[in-house]
């Protein structure tokens, strides 16, 4: 595990912080300091909304080292609202419920651990976008009855 490498990328991993091009306004993720659209220098930090939709996905049953405990898990290409396409794990979802175009949102989760003694790597994953459901008036009454 390269501690320095993960430390350098903590802003993009925790906050989904990329860049915005000061010349043409293109939003860039991951940050690369050069605009892929106009090739101008682009170092202005930009925090993405975290909202996007599934562009494509695949479920992993045979995981690379460090991810074995999570199988089966789904990885996706997520098209962010602001434009870039990001590869990330999906979480809080069952494989059968994933579809192309599914609205998702970024959450910060454990990506992997370097064994029992090593560091814990946190970073972005995406889950189905949560929305405020209609209130369930009977729920409180039910809880009261059970108590």
């Amino acid at each position: 595990m390269e501690v320095a490498r993960f430390w350098r990328t903590r802003h993009q991993r925790y906050q989904l912080m990329g860049e915005v091009c000061p010349h043409c306004g293109t939003k860039i993720f991951p940050p690369r300091d050069v605009c892929p659209a106009c090739e101008g220098e682009a170092k202005t930090p930009f925090v993405f909304s975290g909202r996007g939709e599934v562009y494509s996905f695949s479920t992993i049953h045979s995981a690379p080292a460090g991810f074995e405990k999570y199988v089966p898990y789904t990885v996706a290409l997520v098209r962010l609202e602001e434009g870039p396409l990001v590869t990330a794990q999906l979480t809080d979802v069952d494989e059968k419920d994933v579809y192309i175009g599914m609205p998702v949102e970024m959450v910060t989760r454990v990506l992997r651990e370097d064994g029992e003694r090593g560091m814990i790597v946190y970073g972005y994953k995406f889950r189905p976008r949560l929305t405020q459901p209609a209130p369930e008036p009977q729920h409180a009454a039910e809880a009261a009855a059970a108590a």
Binding site: Y14, K69, Y70, Q89, T91, D92, V107, T108, R109, V110, L111, I120, Y122, K125, A146
Partner: peptide, 19 residues
């Protein structure tokens, strides 16, 4: 109690605190 919340495999106090 009737039921209890259980964290997912990729959740801990740091991730729950962040949300």
């Amino acid at each position: 109690v009737r039921e209890k919340a259980v964290p997912g495999l990729d959740e801990d106090v740091a991730t729950m605190s962040i949300e």
